[in-house]
Simulated scan of single mutants.
Amino acid sequence: MMLRSRPVVRWVAALAGVPLLLYLLALTWLWFRQERLLFYPEPWPSEDPPALKAPDVRSLWVEVPGAKLHALHLRQTNARGLVFFLHGNGGNLASWFVNTDFYRRAGYDLFMLDYRGYGRSSGQIASEAQLMGDVRTAWQQVSPQYAGRPVVAYGRSLGTGLAAQLAAEVNPALTVLVSPYRSMAALADEHYPMVPAALLRYPLRTDEAVGRIRGPVWLVHGGRDSLIPPAHSEALQALAGAQRVRLLRVPEAGHNDVHQFPAYLDGLSSELARL
């Protein structure tokens, strides 16, 4: 009797191992292809948006190892300073380079970069180190043009982790983080709790960087943000100290529309005026 049952036991054991095998295969795929989950670049549209055709907006290129990155620069006469803007994980400059009239009224130039593979930028994102290296190269290309004037490191969503790391290194006059996350591991744990944190090749530790930023930090978060909950901004403020880090909550805003609310626009205008 026992001898006859052994094939059945092996068959049951094999079936029990199928979910584990599928799980391991999924983790392997995630390790090698996680860029497809994190980055959503879009090709450049057939026609430039109207905002990009203004006479004070110019297109330029940032040379990085193995690629050329497209950037847009709103450059005014006698600008008070510069906002160095790192955008989110979708779209490209055609959809992100907006609110230019706001910056004109504030008297600040705006510089925005497309990451590798976004819009007109060539190449592909391959690692966090490469991504941060590209951001540093762009900063080094544009920020010396504003010597003696305030330069703001601004990050939105995905860009907040990059902006925080940059600010910890270069000490800008102000760091603005809109819809930030504590870390990519913390965010992944909320949305994909079955994925081990060690598997993430883009940890993007905003929580480690924010405490090393020496200048003022302004956080903005929509109260209805379900992608990156407001608790992330609250945790960052607690880590760095409320005296140096101010947090604006926009109760009615979600993740993608916070820049459209007067509370955000008035707040950013006030923060820039402080400089």
Rank of each mutant, 00 (worst) to 15 (best):
68 K>Q: 15
38 L>I: 15
125 I>M: 11
132 M>A: 12
194 M>Y: 10
23 Y>T: 03
110 L>Y: 07
32 F>C: 01
6 R>M: 15
215 G>R: 06
151 V>T: 12
135 V>G: 07
109 D>L: 10
63 E>W: 09
252 E>I: 11
103 Y>W: 04
34 Q>S: 08
226 S>G: 02
224 R>K: 14
116 R>Q: 09
120 R>Q: 15
14 A>T: 13
121 S>P: 03
234 E>D: 04
214 R>F: 06
170 V>S: 00
77 T>S: 15
197 A>E: 12
62 V>T: 14
127 S>A: 14
71 A>V: 13
23 Y>H: 09
204 L>C: 13
223 G>L: 05
239 L>H: 02
110 L>Q: 10
84 F>N: 02
244 R>I: 01
46 S>I: 09
41 P>D: 04
145 Q>A: 15
6 R>V: 15
192 Y>W: 03
107 G>T: 07
103 Y>L: 06
4 R>T: 13
26 A>H: 00
180 P>F: 02
273 A>Q: 15
219 L>Y: 02
218 W>F: 09
205 R>E: 15
5 S>G: 10
171 N>H: 06
15 L>F: 05
255 H>S: 08
159 G>W: 02
179 S>P: 06
221 H>L: 02
197 A>P: 07
68 K>W: 12
96 W>M: 11
88 G>K: 10
261 F>I: 03
93 L>G: 13
36 R>Y: 12
188 A>H: 02
182 R>A: 08
225 D>L: 07
23 Y>F: 11
180 P>C: 00
84 F>M: 01
122 S>P: 09
16 A>F: 01
96 W>D: 12
159 G>A: 02
177 L>F: 02
152 V>A: 03
18 V>E: 07
173 A>Y: 01
271 E>D: 07
86 L>R: 04
190 E>F: 03
8 V>H: 11
212 R>G: 02
271 E>M: 10
208 E>K: 09
108 Y>I: 00
128 E>G: 08
260 Q>M: 10
226 S>C: 05
182 R>T: 12
104 R>M: 05
18 V>F: 07
